[in-house]
Design a protein around this nucleic acid. Structure first.
Length: 918
RNA sequence: GCGGAGAUGGCGUAAUUGGUAGUCGCGCCAGACUUAGGAUCUGGUGGCGAGAGCCGUGUGGGUUCGAGUCCCACUCCCCGCACCA
């Protein structure tokens, strides 16, 4: 019988759907396992072969775990709010909900064709009110909590209010935007409006005037991780810095926990490192410098307090709040001109011109607290307002940026650490002995840093301090297609909606563009206000809002009382395996960890980290094909002959090329201008050139999984994507090898049938050799799946099939089919039933490895003489070292190599002769 | 500049973790069956050499009886961060 993948795949996909084979329930009699894919944004282009790579891997693992007796939660859904649908709506007037629905339908049919074992009854879509109700709910919880640094957790805002009413800010150690200081009397005397303003300084979801990344082309603000090199990640539009009132999430409150939590996670080192860099912890000290002729003290942050004797100037950021005060009247014009010039430069220009030194002297001086020296204060944009205090002590001898600045302005450079030549370059290394530094002379840098921290604190000049590079996440977007904020305004004060008013549903609007006044599209709706007529917030939430807790919702997707019930949460806990792209390293994967930790603090969930193990699948690149047109003609010359002509390289659709051989008729039919193309062939074929490029429409190298499924079947696609190489590695999509995998499946299938197509599996006892082959494969495949080494386990299957030869015994073939089923669910299901089994192959027990079948009577070991000549010897098992030595020395082959000499040394490791030294 | 990961036949990859480098697949070569082959099956296939053999895991050193694997230095490619004080 022929392997008719089309028929049997359709048959089983329908059957699985009918039987709801993959639905799971809480079952405390079984251990749970939660396997999650990063849910896709349903774009209009549909899936290409790169998308399913991770899905296939996680599906294999899910099926494997299920066969091993785990109750596996393996859900799927859609990250359905987003910019592309909205932009499409602006262009076409079609409601984003409509296009999103269409795209979701397309995605679903593509996913179904590949035979995934998702429990679709748990599907979530972030754009549905039943879902975003819980996004809004979490936001309100953040709004009504603050972060207590001493307790290390989020607390109710009422507790803070009570503290203010009783003691003001005294004794507070809480996360805030700005260090405020007020008394209980002051607090109690303030108006409600003033108090609300102050509370925003502490809330975990809060409103503030901040410098934001404003993208004029998109008409919205963007988070730091949505901006790359001064351009928007989506669309590549320029981004400028602007001060605006926005909603933010106080992610920075959780920075220490986000950092520490990484150590416990089974994530790749590179991904953890990306997050560590993004969080950017640096341990240093704040130091206050007196300002000459002022009672103010300039606060700076430094990680190198040991170099304080080498400070020869100070620099403050152009946005520093004291710039005006510190500017003397003589310097005023120059400073103002400088501020004006820096303001005009966009973020992009600023990045591009990092090498150019610029700045001006303010005319004021600070006093070095250790030397008493006068040091000039400069303004320069190489100091960033947003990091530390926006002011630095400059040590040109040991900081390359300060060095460049000092050279440019002819400032003094005093070396304080031995080791470099500060005339030529700064010596930035944190090693060497201190010089020119009074009481720390002779100390090693690391010792000196510790010593100075103590000294600074003892003299009351400042404190040790930890700074983070991580910024609070800007949480509002001036867009339509996102979650509305459950917030209304009264007298410009933001008030939360009550929980029973949720979800606050997106209103209909006529157009999806900003209003003429530049208000977000929601302002177009006249109904966008409370019953009392107070206006709702018109911004919507960003893309990461909906994806921050979706893994929790899958546990209990239809619960209308809670995000997730505690029963469901205590059973499923957190994600055991998360598979997805590395591009979310500094976005989604930070925000959802923050979100999770926050909900954990409030006691809604029982795990502090959302994703225990995370695997990043590599990117699938495109493999483009080229044809070579002889310039000025419609003749196309094959790759090997193109040197003889002057040719022009043209991308050709990879779907009409097979193994780099062009389908000539398909090519003529491809485009009208090639209809009468002529070809110069080599060996009767047209060979195309190729290159590895990004998979994109314009390169004609997009391979749609549907095409592979139609021509080879889903099982072949699944196996082939895994066979391509290690999962984590980026690799080009190359269909050239797909025949090998397809051939394997056909050969496997044909084992069950004779030439006439009769089912011929026998109940004969397997031979020891057959059992050995089977169990060797079981061992290898189990180990490889556990290690996510799917490509090598496929190789093991292929070897097994070759070794089995003509074997058609049930005792071998049935376990083989089950072993293979995570990779090839359809063919395995069909064979499982042909073998007379009921139910589904996914309820079978995964074959256990039995070491008894691998027992050998003898073992082989390599023998080398002086590390040169080698041969393989076979000896019986379980003999002593002395016996081995005796056998070796009496052996003819050995004597040949020793030429009758007695070896000086016989090296035996773990019972094996490793080498014989003459 | 800082940090991470990597480099093995014509190609994608593998190597019991220090023990005969090249598993599996593609491609290629030969053969079988065929009117035919872009189907199927069988065998071969790192390079050089007629041969015995020699050389081979980015480069150069080192440790070891023995190194793709461990150590040192370097080169190149990919990725992340980047005036972060």
């Amino acid at each position: 019988m022929e392997y008719n993948f089309k028929e049997l795949e359709a048959k089983w996909q329908q059957e699985w759907q009918k039987q709801q084979t993959y639905q799971v329930k809480v079952d405390s009699s079984k251990p749970k396992f939660y396997v999650l894919d990063m849910f896709p944004y349903p774009s209009g282009a549909g899936l290409h072969v790169g998308h399913p790579l991770g899905y296939i891997a996680s599906d294999i693992y899910s099926r494997y775990k299920r066969l091993c007796g785990f109750n596996v939660l393996h859900p799927m859904g859609y990250d359905a709010f987003g910019l592309p649908a909205e932009q499409y709506a602006i262009q076409t007037g079609q409601h984003p909900a409509v296009t999103t629905e269409q795209n979701v339908t397309r995605y679903r049919s593509q996913l179904d064709k590949i035979g995934f074992s998702y429990d679709w009854s748990r599907e979530v879509r972030t754009c549905e009110p039943e879902y975003y109700k819980w996004t809004q709910w979490a936001f309100l919880e953040m709004f009504s909590h603050y972060y207590d640094n001493t307790l290390g957790k989020a607390e109710k805002i009422e507790k803070l209010i009570a503290h203010f009413a009783e003691k003001g800010t005294e004794g507070l150690n809480v996360a805030c935007s700005e260090q405020l200081s007020f008394t209980a009397e002051e607090w109690n005397s303030w108006s409600e409006k003033k108090r609300e303003e102050v509370l925003h300084n502490y809330r975990l979801a809060f409103r503030a005037d901040t410098m934001v990344n404003w993208c004029p082309a998109l008409g919205t603000v963007l988070a730091n991780d949505e901006v790359k090199d001064g351009l928007s990640e989506r669309g590549g539009h320029p981004v400028v810095q602007r001060k605006m009132k926005q909603w933010l999430l106080r992610v920075t409150a959780y920075a220490p926990r986000l950092l520490e939590g990484l150590d416990k996670l089974e994530w790749s080192e590179s991904l953890k490192e990306i997050q560590r860099n993004w969080i950017g912890k640096s341990t240093g000290a704040q130091v206050f410098f007196d300002i000459e002729g002022s009672d103010k003290k300039l606060e700076i942050f430094t990680t190198r307090p040991d170099t304080i004797f080498g400070v020869t100037f100070m620099v403050i950021a152009p946005e520093h709040e004291w710039v005006k005060e510190l500017t003397s009247s003589d310097a005023q014009n120059e400073v103002e001109a400088y501020l004006e010039a820096t303001k005009k430069r966009s973020e992009r220009e600023r990045i591009a011109e990092t090498k150019r030194v610029s700045g001006v002297f303010t005319g004021s001086y600070a006093i070095n607290p250790f030397t008493g020296k006068r040091i000039p204060i400069y303004v320069s944009d190489y100091v960033l307002a947003g990091y530390g205090t926006g002011a630095i002590m400059a040590v040109p001898a040991h900081d390359s940026r300060d060095w460049a600045f000092a050279k440019h302005f002819g400032l003094e450079i005093i070396p304080v650490v031995e080791g470099g030549n500060v005339e030529e370059a700064s010596y930035d290394a944190k090693e060497g002995k201190l010089i020119n530094s009074d009481f720390i002379n002779g100390l090693d840098v690391k010792v000196a840093i510790e010593r100075m921290w103590d000294e600074i604190e003892a003299r009351g000049l400042g404190k040790r301090k930890v700074n983070y590079r991580l910024r609070d996440a800007i949480f509002s977007r001036q867009r339509y297609w996102g979650e509305p904020f459950p917030i209304y305004y009264k007298d410009d004060v933001a008030y939360p909606l009550s929980l029973d008013a949720l979800p606050l549903e997106l209103p209909e609007v006529e157009k999806f563009t900003p209003t003429a006044e530049g208000e977000p599209p929601l302002a177009r709706s006249e109904k966008w206000q409370t019953a009392e007529g107070y206006p709702y917030e018109t911004s919507t939430m960003p893309g990461f809002a909906g994806s921050s807790a979706y893994y929790l919702r899958y546990m209990d997707p239809h619960n209308s009382e809670a995000l997730v019930s505690s029963e469901a949460n205590e059973y499923w806990r957190n994600v055991d395996l998360y598979v997805g792209g590395i591009e979310h390293a500094t976005g989604h994967l930070i925000y959802s960890r923050f979100w999770n930790k926050f909900l954990y603090d409030l006691g809604y969930i029982c795990e502090d980290e959302p994703f225990k193990k995370l695997v990043n699948q590599g990117m699938i690149q495109g493999r483009s094909n080229f044809v070579y047109r002889v310039v000025g003609t419609n003749k196309f010359v094959s790759l090997g002959l193109r040197k003889e002509y002057e040719t022009q390289e043209i991308h050709v659709d990879v779907n009409i090329v097979k193994n780099d051989i062009l389908d000539l008729d398909a090519f003529r039919a491809w485009r009208p201008d090639f209809a009468d193309a002529e070809f110069i062939l080599e060996d009767g074929k047209y060979v195309c050139g190729w290159a590895i490029e990004k998979m994109s429409k314009s390169m004609f190298n997009v391979v749609n999984p549907d095409y592979i499924v139609d021509n080879y079947g889903a099982d072949t696609l699944r196996m082939y994507e895994m066979f391509l190489g290690p999962l984590e590695q980026s690799k080009p999509w190359d269909t050239n090898g797909i025949d090998g995998v397809h051939k394997f499946l056909r050969r496997f299938w044909s084992k069950f049938f004779d030439k006439a197509g009769n089912f011929v599996v026998t109940d004969e006892e397997p031979t020891p050799a057959e059992l050995k082959t089977l169990h060797k494969t079981i061992k290898k495949v189990r180990e490889d799946i556990e290690n996510f080494s799917f490509n090598t386990s496929i190789a093991a299957f292929m070897i097994c099939l070759n070794e089995l030869g003509q074997c058609n015994k049930r005792a071998i073939l049935e376990p083989f089919a089950v072993l293979l089923s995570p990779f090839t669910p359809h063919i395995s299901e069909e064979l499982w039933h042909l073998l007379g089994n009921e139910g589904s192959v996914c309820d079978a027990h995964y074959p256990e490895f039995n070491p008894d079948f691998l027992v050998e009577n003898s073992f082989e070991y390599p023998v080398s003489f002086n590390g040169k000549m080698r041969f393989k010897k076979s000896l019986p098992l379980g003999i002593s070292t002395e016996e081995i030595q005796a056998l070796i020395l009496a052996d003819e082959q050995t004597l040949k190599y020793t030429e009758g000499k007695t070896p000086k040394k016989v090296i035996i490791v773990a019972g094996k002769i490793i080498n014989i030294v003459l």
